[in-house]
Each structure stands twice: as C-alpha cells, then as structure tokens.
C-alpha cells in the first residue's frame, strides 16, 4: 500500500501545484520529501503530467545539488566544510563518521539505507563550528566522540544492532 500512497501523494502534489510547469522545482522538492530521492519513473510521470519533456525535468533535477536521483538514507548527515568548520577540523570529523558508518570510498549511503553522509559548503552557523546537521537537527562544536554518540543514539532509537 505504501507504493500507492506515495503515487497518490505525487498526484496530490501535482494537483496542489495546479499542474503548473512553472512550479516544477516546488513539485520536485515535495516529491523528494516523499521518496527521499527522485525515482526515474516518477520523474517521467511528473514530466508527462506537466507537459514537459523527461529530458528537461532530468536537467532540472541534476542541476540542483539539493535533488538526488539515488535513494538516500533515512538520516541525512550533512557535515559543514565551510572555511570556519574546515579550520576547526571538519575533515577529521568526516573521516571519523565515514569509519563509524563503515562507508567505503565512493559510498555515501549505508547499505541498510539508514544513513547518508554528505558535505556542504556552509550551513551559516560558523559560530558553532564544526557543525553537522542530521535531517533538521543542528549539532554544533562537534568532535568525533560527540558524533559517535549521536549516531549511536539514532541506531538505538531505530532498534538496530550495534552499528556497523
């Protein structure tokens, strides 16, 4: 039923936006909220519904780094690597998190689809450097140890074994 609920949600998103091709970005944001990424077949569906070409919709979806065409984890961890955070050793934090999550080079999402790790250029919270954001929650003045605890907390909450 989950599949239909989502597809109906897409139909609803399209209706709410009046099937207006000018609202493509808003529509894609809402669709991504629903699926946590933008599946190809849904993009094709959105394109046909808005009377746009799939190539155009794909162009928009790949242009903005906010959009992703690959499934992302339930928890998206964004590490700030802006100047202030970088100076405050965000790189060490990134290495520690990659190790904690068991992410091999080139991987950004854990195989169980629980976590996705990304770097961003600035979160605008330089006073709290180094900063990470997990979904919508901001964690300031992070250290590898503190980050470890945040991850453990989520794993515990999700009721899954002992990390990876």
């Amino acid at each position: 039923m989950e599949g239909l609920r989502k597809l109906e949600k897409v139909c609803q998103i399209l209706e709410e936006n009046g099937r207006d091709p000018g609202r493509l970005i808003t529509i894609l944001q809402a669709v991504q909220e629903e699926y946590r990424y933008l599946p190809e077949e849904i993009l094709t569906f959105v394109a046909t519904s808005l009377n746009l070409t799939s190539a155009h919709v794909y162009g928009v979806a790949t242009f903005y780094s906010h959009f992703t065409l690959k499934p992302k984890g339930k928890y998206i961890i964004r590490i700030c690597d802006g100047t202030a955070c970088h100076v405050k050793k965000s790189t060490a934090l990134l290495d520690a998190l990659r190790q904690k999550l068991g992410l091999k080079p080139g991987m950004v999402t854990t195989p169980d689809m629980l976590f996705t790790l990304e770097t961003v250029s600035c979160l605008g919270a330089c006073g709290l450097a180094p900063v990470i954001v997990v979904n919508d929650e901001v964690y300031g003045q992070m250290t590898p140890e503190k980050a470890d605890k945040v991850i453990d907390g989520i794993i515990k909450k999700e009721g899954i074994g002992n990390g990876k």
Binding site: L43, T53, S54, A55, Y58, G59, T62, L69
Partner: peptide, 28 residues
C-alpha cells in the same frame, strides 16, 4: 517539439543528453 535531449548537470559537469542519461535508441 520533441525535446529528446537537454542540458543536464551543471558547471564543469554540464552535458547535453537524453533523459536520465539514457541513450538515443531508447527515448522519444
């Protein structure tokens, strides 16, 4: 009015391609 190819990605990665990076033989 076919629009089988368009710009995708951005900056130094910009490229012209059919949707989803498919090949011309499988699109409109």
């Amino acid at each position: 009015s076919v629009g089988a190819i368009d710009f995708a990605w951005r900056g130094s990665k910009s490229a012209v391609m059919p949707c989803f990076g498919k090949n011309l033989g499988s699109v409109e």
